[in-house]
């Protein structure tokens, strides 16, 4: 696959987007939204990470194989967290007092 050269203008736009998202996540964290605080913070983090991976790390212009490898990493991390939490979150089930 021939190398794709991303113009500096694209990098600049991505940097501005990343800084705006950082300011947003910081500002939003001061508002009390209950459980939504964590959801919004992690969603913005994923948006920023996707921008870095797709543009700075060239995943958007890479072979599908590279994207599969990167997605596999996330998928395995998902298994690690999901299976661990399926234990911790269900430990109290079944032993109700009284």
């Amino acid at each position: 696959m021939p190398e794709h050269i991303v113009p500096i203008k694209t990098y600049t736009i991505v940097l501005i987007a990343l800084l705006v998202l950082t300011a947003t996540t910081c500002a939003v964290s001061f508002i009390d939204m209950g459980k939504m605080n964590a959801v919004v913070a992690v969603a913005i983090a994923f948006a920023k990470a996707s921008l870095v991976a797709l543009i700075f790390m060239h995943l958007r212009y890479s072979r599908r194989l590279m994207r599969v490898v990167a997605a596999a990493g996330l998928f395995w991390l998902g298994i690690l967290i999901a299976l661990t939490m399926s234990d911790y979150l269900t430990r109290g089930w079944g032993n109700r007092p009284e």
């Binding site: 964290s29 508002i31 605080n37 913070a41 790390m57």
Partner: peptide
């Protein structure tokens, strides 16, 4: 960039957890 992505997650998880308090 990968190390940058790790920090992108560390920042909200460590610094922003309780700001609304």
């Amino acid at each position: 960039h990968f190390v940058d992505i790790i920090w992108i997650f560390l920042y909200p998880l460590l610094y922003l957890v309780g700001r609304h308090l």
